[in-house]
Amino acid sequence: MNDRVQQNRISRLEQLALLLSKQDPPRCLLCQASRGRGLMRWRCMRSSPEAPSLQHWLCSNCERAVPWIRSIHCTRCGRGTVCPDCLRHPKRSFSWNRSAVRYDPLMREWLAQYKFRGRERLMPLLGEMMLPLASAVIDKLSHDRHSNRPIVLTYIPLSRERMHGRGFNQAEQLAAYLSRALQLPMYTLLHRHRHTEKQSYKDRKSRLRALRGAFSYNETAKLHVIQEGVFKPYVLIVDDVYTTGSTLEEAAKVIRNKLDCDVAGLTWARA
């Protein structure tokens, strides 16, 4: 505890130095407001105990505006409120899904900047936002009954055209970030075939139809961890947003057809 106080004091000294120096203060990654000038950043005022590392990137306003999902109402999809979707489909291929934040307009804006505008500098921030949730989930899984079950990460792939247009796959990057931070193996288990148009423009039914058969199992993935293990592995599928669960459902179905495992979802936001 003393160490941390000490650390705090040093950082405040640094802030003072920053205040006195003519250098530009670091800017908030999202609203461009300068941050770090305030000497009065007490720990009790820190708004997100979930992910204290966010203050490396964000000003306190943006940090406070993150709509964390703190309590889960639906144990299936990880929503903070009651959800008719899960009541309508009681049987699903994935066991559960957990999301770090609610997909409110602000989060939508952040994701749009990263995913559609291509501001890849935001990736570590989003990854960091998922990290506390992911590590809690992993802790829980490894303390459960089957503590020897291997846990692997995978992600929702993009079609080839989309990949060339965008230049990166946000789900893959998030998965890679988590895999590095938590030291879990990550595999490309899926391929996406069809070039499905932007999901957000469609109604539920046509979205489902478009998704059918979109994924296929990647036979070349070398799953030595999975194959050597005696126990049924846990596959966590990483994605950016969970909307209706249809994407996750489709992906989980394909994986479970080929692999004897449990599948669950880890998403950054829950719509």
Binding site: E120, R121, R166, G167
Partner: peptide
């Protein structure tokens, strides 16, 4: 900013100023 790029398969910088 340098990132690995799926379109050309190499490390490839992108411009953040005119995003």
């Amino acid at each position: 900013h340098w990132r690995s790029c799926a379109a050309c398969g190499t490390a490839c910088p992108y411009c953040e100023q005119c995003l």
